[in-house]
């Protein structure tokens, strides 16, 4: 049973702690929303779990039974992290950008796959337009298309719904819910209400220090 164990975690930028002694275990098929005001450390938490920042204290562990080759998987091999930034280069098209991102994530996708996912998401017309000519909402949707291409079990999503309209938000919620129903794990932050159909949403409040 894969699970994410966060133990006695204190995070901060520089020497100053933003929150302290967070304990959280996320098991198969669980999704949690991180609550907190601006500047309370929501983004820092996600980036620390992803391994971009080092915790001031505490541990983050990815537990999973060893695979066929006897090697336990590392968190990086199991992760899909979508941050504030879309990670799209303006001079490249959505197809080219997604192709690179999926390869770098160790989950290469063929051009047909990418194109059909973009078509499913209603982005067919812009699939071959350079990203600098897209609107903020379109760029966000292209970036989120990674969620349909990846098979990573652990999703870390930082404000995934920013710049999305109501319809796109519903599509996103449906995708997160499907992922969780299929046994995936997700940890996300959001300002807007996100209603995930047919799954229970856990809420995590960051303990002040």
């Amino acid at each position: 049973m894969p699970r994410l164990e966060i133990d006695n975690l204190s995070c901060g930028r520089g020497e100053k702690a933003l929150f302290a002694r967070l304990d959280l275990t996320l098991c198969e098929g669980e999704v949690a929303r991180v609550l907190g005001e601006n500047g309370s450390g929501k983004t820092t938490l996600l980036r620390t779990v992803a391994g971009l920042y080092r915790p001031l204290e505490g541990t983050i562990r990815w537990q999973e039974p060893a695979g066929a080759d006897g090697e336990p998987a590392t968190l990086h091999e199991r992760l899909c992290f979508i941050s504030h930034d879309n990670a799209l280069n303006g001079a490249l098209t959505p197809v080219e950008n997604l192709d690179l991102l999926m390869r770098v994530a160790g989950r290469p996708a063929s051009e047909e796959q990418i194109r059909s996912i973009l078509a499913d998401l209603g982005l067919k017309r812009i699939a071959h337009r350079s990203c600098e000519r897209l609107s903020a909402g379109q760029r966000r949707r292209v970036s989120l298309a990674r969620l349909w291409l990846t098979d990573a079990p652990l999703w870390l999503l930082d404000e995934p719904a920013s710049a999305l309209d109501v319809d796109a938000r519903a599509v996103l919620c449906e995708r997160i819910a499907a992922h969780v129903r299929g046994g995936g794990l997700a940890l996300f932050t959001t300002h807007e209400r996100l209603d995930l159909p047919t799954v229970t949403l856990r809420e995590v409040t960051l303990p002040a220090c």
């Binding site: 391994g51 590392t74 504030h84 930034d85 990670a87 770098v104 994530a105």
Partner: peptide, 17 residues
């Protein structure tokens, strides 16, 4: 710099490669 600004660089850092 461009990869740093648009967030691609952090995806490189998170790569299993």
């Amino acid at each position: 710099r461009p990869d740093y600004e648009d967030g691609t660089l952090e995806q490189y850092l998170l790569s299993p490669e």
